[in-house]
Design a protein around this nucleic acid. Structure first.
Lengths: 340, 340
DNA sequence: TGCCATGCTGGGAGCGCTCCCGGGAGCGCT
DNA sequence: AGCGCTCCCGGGAGCGCTCCCAGCATGGCA
């Protein structure tokens, strides 16, 4: 069984290469009968145009790069990534684009990618996740001509990206805690080398300041998004006897609650907890976790669609896309259980 | 800045297209001086050969497909996948291969992939993870000519795959529990539509039978690898009053321990628990989880290397590669804490 | 001196596709 | 009848590379 070519399909349908090409690319100027004949031959034979040949001339590969930087090794276990990737995949599938996965162990590999994927024309564009402060890849791509969009806010503000309103979300969470009447509110913050971490911390501090509350630095502990780091952070915080803690991620909140459990501190009676992300099953923690939910899947989908716009606009509209967050009250903050 | 071509590089180095090509592909018959001159021009200019052109003639794309079927949506959060993918990535990077990610929402998308990726020559080969019983994609690929390897044991035994010795591991775990003297041993099994689930269950039953123990079916509960399913399964099991439970995955073991905690049952005093995978931090559960550890990362690396062998042998040696498992004793099975 | 092997280099052909242009058929109008 | 237009269709050219073969030196040998 030899590979089929356009020419061969043309022969079988009694038309020329060009006509078959027009049919496949849904171009006009093909009579209905001819079109049908060609289409019939195509699905009898199961013909698929050769990608390499096609992209050689069109310089389009229909391949989108998906970059997950080294810094997020441990993050991979976070359900957040699963969802994000699923959003990205589903939008890509819908647009008949294929994803190329770039995961790095170290910075050397990360730079090797540039030659392999970007300069050689492997992909049409890139999506970069887990935005870091001063991302070296982003810097480099900005100087190149390969379209890309970042997931999360980059520190340079002229880079197209889609983000969730982390500051507003953190503010919301904090205000909720303040509204409950808690006095000594602390936070388990996300890494300060990520813009996400910075924004959630800023939102927290803003809300506190707006309420006229000072935040002593011992009431701020930093984690790295993992459950373990949440546990450790809470252990440290405990010495300050907070009566409420805003955790910058649900996974860290889960860790924090483990630490509290182990220390015999009751939630929410002794201490209120609120998370961020909205990706845990309510039954995953006891009591169920109040959290700021963000549209993770939609974030992924938007990123793909923004990139696709960039690809054929060249210059798509807004540089920044911001998705809203939402407070989901459950029990860990001290609210009553909602009627089941 | 126009795209560089072989011809252009040749012009700059004062040689022909062909010579440059020979240098790039590390072929013989190039004099040292010429070679150096060409190499110099290449890295002055940062030239990268065009992939499409290259694969059009060589019909090699240096792209490997990575398939994650729809059934594992929920699994994605399992740290197992993160590790596996990292193993795959790192082996692929080392071999200068790029990964294409195929994740599906449903079976329709899954079949659409076949045309998009396989028939059109997008990838050189495929790695299929999360092997299911009667995997439709596997069936189809077997009839095609695209090389592929599966991670996990497929039900058809003529398909190249790399697997971990799940039966032996499950036996090991069960024998350990028996050795402790537990009388009513149950299991939280993995899905029976996965070969992994089947094998771990078989290993458990074999060990029980070998020890002359009957296993009543109420002492078998099935989960789906998630924490939640572990919780539910343990709740069901509890009515049978087991004194030990072999959990077919660490995540389910973690869920089981949550259920026990909630029910006020002490581990390991009232009930012993043993997991499978070896991917949880010892501090993730309290008490620390005894488990069967498997070399997840190595599994991923092997899969890539097997595929690469297939690609240039055409017919690589063993159809089956089996990696060993290992018992890691911690506290949840009733063993004493190892000296720190 | 002639001859063949050997080392290195250049250029033609062609991979399978898209793009462009030219041309035939059919139609309506002057 | 002749003209110009639209609607279809076919074939040439060329994307940037690899592969193959021919050709030019050079050197060793009879």
């Amino acid at each position: 069984m030899k590979r089929l070519t356009l020419e061969e399909i043309g022969r079988l349908a009694g038309v020329s290469r060009s006509t078959v090409s027009r049919v496949i690319n849904e171009q006009p100027d093909v009579s209905p009968e001819v079109k049908k004949r060609v289409l019939d031959v195509i699905d009898e034979t199961g013909y698929q145009p050769n990608r390499a040949a096609r992209s050689l001339v069109s310089s389009r590969t229909d391949l989108l790069g998906l970059v997950i930087p080294s810094s997020v090794h441990n993050l991979f276990a976070d359900p957040y990534f699963g969802r994000l990737i699923r959003g990205i995949t589903s939008a890509a599938n819908a647009a008949h684009q294929t994803l190329s996965l770039f995961l790095f162990e170290d910075e050397r590999e990360e730079l090797e990618l540039y030659g392999r994927a970007v300069a050689s024309g492997l992909v049409d564009g890139m999506i970069i996740t887990a935005t870091r402060m001063g991302d070296p890849l982003a810097q480099r791509l900005r100087d190149g001509r390969l379209p890309f969009v970042m997931v999360g806010r980059p520190d340079a503000d002229d880079i197209p990206h889609v983000d969730v309103d982390n500051q507003a979300g953190a503010r919301l969470a904090t205000e909720h805690l303040i509204g409950h009447g808690y006095e000594r509110i602390g936070t388990i913050a996300a890494p300060s080398n990520t813009t996400t971490g910075v924004d959630r911390r800023t939102g927290f501090l803003d809300a506190m300041r707006a309420a006229g509350r000072a935040v002593k630095s011992p009431l701020i502990a930093e984690g790295d998004f993992t459950v373990e780091s949440g546990r450790f952070a809470m252990d440290r915080l405990l010495s300050q006897q907070p009566d409420a803690v805003f955790c910058a991620s649900d996974t860290m909140a889960a860790g924090a609650m483990q630490a509290l459990e182990a220390a015999g501190v009751r939630v929410p009676d002794d201490i209120a907890i609120i998370g961020f992300d909205g990706i845990l099953d309510p039954s995953a923690t006891d009591p169920s976790l109040t959290t700021i939910s963000q549209p993770v899947r939609a974030t992924g989908e938007r990123a793909v669609n923004r990139l696709l716009e960039l690809l054929d606009d060249g210059t798509s509209s807004p540089v920044r896309t911001v998705l809203p967050t939402e407070l989901i009250t459950r029990r860990s903050c001290g609210c009553e259980e909602a009627a089941a």
